[in-house]
Amino acid sequence: MNRRMVLRAGATGAAVLGLSACRILDGDTSLRRAMASANGLTWRVQRALAGGRSLAREYAEADIRQGMRPNGVTDPDAADYLALKAGGWADYRLRVTGLVARPLSLSLADLRAMPVRSQITRHDCVEGWSCIARWTGTPLGLVLDLARPLVAARYAVFHCFDTIERGLAGEVKYYESHDLIDAWHPQTILAWGMNGTDLPVANGAPLRLRVERALGYKHAKYIHTIELADSLAGFGTGRGSYWADRGYDWYAGI
């Protein structure tokens, strides 16, 4: 009798848990936060095991079998973006600001005059698909070296032209951020070329990020400003990126 009661209680408990899990996972509940703390564990373990310089696999030219599938915003409609596009990016400037000794304003020509890195890598979307393409651009670390980040800087925050969401609270611009280990990773580049041509608008023209050990949403497109910061609290709702603010893990290494 006792065991039967235990079994019945267990079954009821499991059913209640299963049902209520539907809603208590919604939004910023303590259960959700507790479960999401596993993502912090993943980040620390990944950094501990392969923090520094392990390289993402690079593929051969023959592995590029299709065009690069674009995702997210594919044709930004912000007025400032459209004006720059109409001018062939001649007036485009990448700004590097925040906790740096020397704020920068770089044209595409400035960036192209710096050392170039070209790599054929696999883009892994959080949705589950992958696509291989060649990416050509300027190593982000070299650009940050020029700006001379202050000791207090811990994150690089990327501000973008594209409006990813229009709500009652107004327009939401895409933004993303990385720790400085990924920012200085040898394969982290500000790409202005793709598959042998200029970066297409659908894929982030004039400038996008490649961070080859992270999922696709970490590769911000349409970048206009890189801001060095000591905390992510002041951006969006404070979780470090547009998608992290919407419940995705900030460090998307898995």
Partner: peptide, 20 residues
């Protein structure tokens, strides 16, 4: 599916928690 509504973000949170 867990959760029963469409949410890749919540699904991933649950998945990685139980993977650990």
């Amino acid at each position: 599916t867990i959760p029963s509504y469409r949410s890749l973000a919540a699904g991933r949170v649950v998945h990685f928690f139980f993977a650990w």
